[in-house]
Amino acid sequence: MDKRTREAVRYLGYGNHAVDEDTLLLIESSFQELSEAADKRIVYRIFNLCLADGDELMIDGLKIKSHSLSRNLKGCESVFLLGATLGTRVDLLLRRYAVGEMARSVTLQACAAALLEEYLDEWQEERRAELAETGQYLRPRFSPGYGDFSILCQEPILRMLDTAKTIGLSMTDGYMLTPSKSVTALAGISREETPCHSKGCEECGKTDCLYRRDS
């Protein structure tokens, strides 16, 4: 089972339970449909970072108070802000199956999340390699909604990156991204190599979550 299939299985909530062959075949065909529909796009910029006392930090005028994010960015002087999306055709595909084909609809949702994660991992590895050439290190990405990093920070991040014009990514009044299979995130840049900075599930305190990665 490859990495993105494992991610899809995790998003489906299987945990440590075995996955039957029919589900694996459904996952495979869902990835095929998504690959044909996806229009992967990403925009990112580097901003100066100022870590204040306590849990406050400043990114080019954007003031954030978050203990988990401050801990993630400790020792960094600059940071990537990014927005990424799989595009509107993926949303159309998800809506097509939302009525009448529940099993495929749920599987497509999980596979789309895994596909977006794979895309971001590839982006992060490319930036890590570029920074390594100049003696710098990239921290794990960190998105609004993780830990105590408020989801309300979606709006200023989108504005700072002008995502509506650059990649067609915007936000509803309820702070939901549209297209739905999209993400905003930060990734710190440091002169110090730090082997253990948490991201995602490792930072979240909800240890009984069905979708939690193994530590």
Rank of each mutant, 00 (worst) to 15 (best):
D39Y: 05
K40T: 10
R41F: 00
I42K: 13
V43N: 12
Y44P: 03
Y44D: 12
Y44H: 14
R45I: 05
I46F: 08
I46S: 05
F47C: 08
F47Y: 15
N48V: 04
N48E: 14
N48P: 15
L49T: 09
L49F: 04
L49G: 08
C50S: 11
L51T: 02
A52Y: 09
D53L: 03
D53N: 11
G54N: 04
D55P: 00
E56T: 04
E56V: 09
L57S: 02
M58Y: 09
M58K: 01
I59W: 00
I59A: 01
D60A: 12
G61R: 06
G61T: 05
G61C: 03
L62A: 01
K63M: 09
K65D: 06
K65G: 04
S66I: 07
H67N: 08
H67D: 08
H67Q: 05
L69Q: 02
L69C: 03
L69P: 11
S70I: 05
S70R: 12
R71M: 10
N72L: 09
N72C: 15
N72E: 15
L73A: 00
L73Y: 07
K74L: 14
G75L: 06
G75Y: 11
G75A: 05
G75T: 07
C76T: 03
C76R: 01
C76G: 04
C76W: 04
E77K: 14
S78A: 12
S78P: 01
S78C: 04
V79A: 05
V79C: 06
V79R: 01
V79L: 03
F80Q: 03
F80T: 00
F80L: 09
L81F: 12
L81T: 00
L81C: 03
L86D: 00
G87V: 02
G87R: 00
G87C: 07
G87Q: 07
T88V: 05
T88Y: 03
T88A: 02
R89L: 06
R89A: 09
V90M: 00
V90Q: 01
V90R: 00
L92H: 08
L92I: 12
L93Y: 08
L94M: 08
L94V: 06
R95K: 13
R96D: 05
R96V: 04
Y97A: 07
A98D: 08
V99Y: 04
V99Q: 09
G100M: 08
G100F: 11
G100E: 10
E101H: 15
E101Q: 13
M102W: 10
M102E: 15
M102P: 13
A103V: 11
R104H: 11
S105I: 04
V106K: 14
T107G: 06
T107V: 14
L108W: 07
L108E: 01
L108S: 07
L108T: 03
L108D: 02
Q109D: 15
Q109C: 10
A110L: 09
C111N: 11
C111I: 15
C111V: 15
A113C: 13
A113P: 11
A113N: 15
A114M: 11
A114V: 10
A114P: 14
